[in-house]
Amino acid sequence: MNLPSISLKQGIHVMHLFYRVDRWRWLQLPSGESTGRRERLTALCQANQAACQPRLTCYANVGGKADLVFMLQHATLDGIARLHRDLEACFPAGVLQPVFSYLSVTELTEYMPTLEDAKLRLQRQENLAPGTPEYEKRLAEEAKRVEDYMHYRLYPELPDWEVMGFYPMNKRRQAGDNWYLLNFEQRKLLMGGHARTGRKYAGRVVQMITGSTGLDDWEWGVTLVARQADTIKEIVYEMRFDEVSARYADFGPFYINLRLSPEALWDHLRLPQV
């Protein structure tokens, strides 16, 4: 049965999947089954390794909350649904025990800097007059920056760095700390400060913010990719002091994961080669 093809107006679907491995069931596998299953997972990863989508990335969780972690990216809802089932079919029935899953989509933030913001900044902060060569040159640079930001926010290309951190979050809706009762100008000002904090980590942390309001139990998923765990700790800690986090954010569980190939996953998890 073919699934209906369902696309987004813009952006892609993202799914984070966390599993434990039932080792007792694994030990009951017939001889040679382990190698065959690993080869199936390797083939699936190789068939889905586009820079943005379709993409399947493998990780080992560090800390004991899960064993195996997978991040799936696909343009269509039916595509990511098939990829999810193709992934689980790489393992014998009952071996994978779901721990946590998260479905979201890439999106543009309503608080992102616009070209109109850039025009005002060029005039007020850089003292450039509209129509001058200097103004037009800088405006073209700002337009390209906004265009690139929009593209990579919607169609992210995460580097294959060693560490991936993930956590879901909500904006708070409690008494005097209700994010959704603030007016747009207040929210944009607060988010602007939050973004400036994040930009300080350019080159050390790459982030993918995905939205899930109405799709999953939280409102956003935050994926942070880095080469060291302490870098992720630093950025999350520093951002806690921004008012938008300190006053208006609630966080779910945090997962730290190591980027590994299927072959390395088998070795790291000490899965016997039955």
Rank of each mutant, 00 (worst) to 15 (best):
S104M: 08
E107L: 06
E116L: 09
V105F: 01
P130K: 02
P130T: 00
T132N: 03
M112S: 15
T132L: 02
K137I: 01
K119S: 08
E136G: 07
R121D: 14
R124L: 11
T114D: 07
M112N: 13
R124N: 11
A118C: 13
L128R: 04
E134F: 06
L115F: 02
T106K: 05
E134H: 08
M112E: 14
Y111C: 05
A118T: 03
E116Q: 14
K119L: 07
E110T: 12
E126P: 04
S104E: 14
P133A: 04
E107Y: 10
Q123H: 11
E110F: 05
T132V: 01
Y135P: 00
E134Y: 02
G131Q: 00
G131E: 03
T132D: 01
L115I: 15
E126L: 10
T132E: 01
E110I: 10
A118K: 08
R138W: 05
E107I: 13
Y111S: 13
Q125K: 11
E116D: 15
E126C: 09
Y111T: 05
P130D: 04
A129E: 14
T132C: 01
R121S: 12
L115P: 04
D117P: 06
K137E: 04
Y135C: 02
L128N: 07
K137V: 04
S104G: 13
P130V: 04
L122Q: 08
Y135F: 08
Y111R: 03
E134G: 02
A129V: 12
P130C: 01
D117F: 01
V105I: 15
R138K: 11
E136N: 10
A129R: 09
L128M: 13
T106D: 05
Q123A: 08
G131A: 00
Y135V: 00
R138A: 13
Q125Y: 11
L115Q: 11
Q125A: 14
E116A: 14
D117S: 03
R124G: 06
L108Y: 02
E110A: 15
T106Q: 08
L108E: 10
M112A: 15
Q123C: 12
R121N: 10
L115W: 00
R124H: 12
D117L: 02
R121C: 06
E126Y: 09
V105D: 04
L122E: 04
K119V: 07
R138C: 13
Q123W: 06
R138E: 10
T106F: 00
E107R: 15
P113Q: 08
L120N: 12
A118W: 00
E126Q: 15
L108S: 09
E136T: 03
T109C: 14
E116G: 06
P113H: 10
K119W: 01
A118N: 10
R121G: 03
G131V: 00
E107D: 15
D117M: 10
A129Y: 08
E110M: 07
S104A: 15
M112P: 02
E136K: 03
D117G: 08
P113N: 14
S104D: 13
L128T: 02
E134A: 13
L120G: 14
E116K: 08
R124P: 02
A118M: 07
N127Q: 09
T132W: 00
R124E: 12
K137Q: 09
Y111N: 07
Q123G: 11
A129C: 10
L128Q: 13
Y135E: 01
G131M: 00
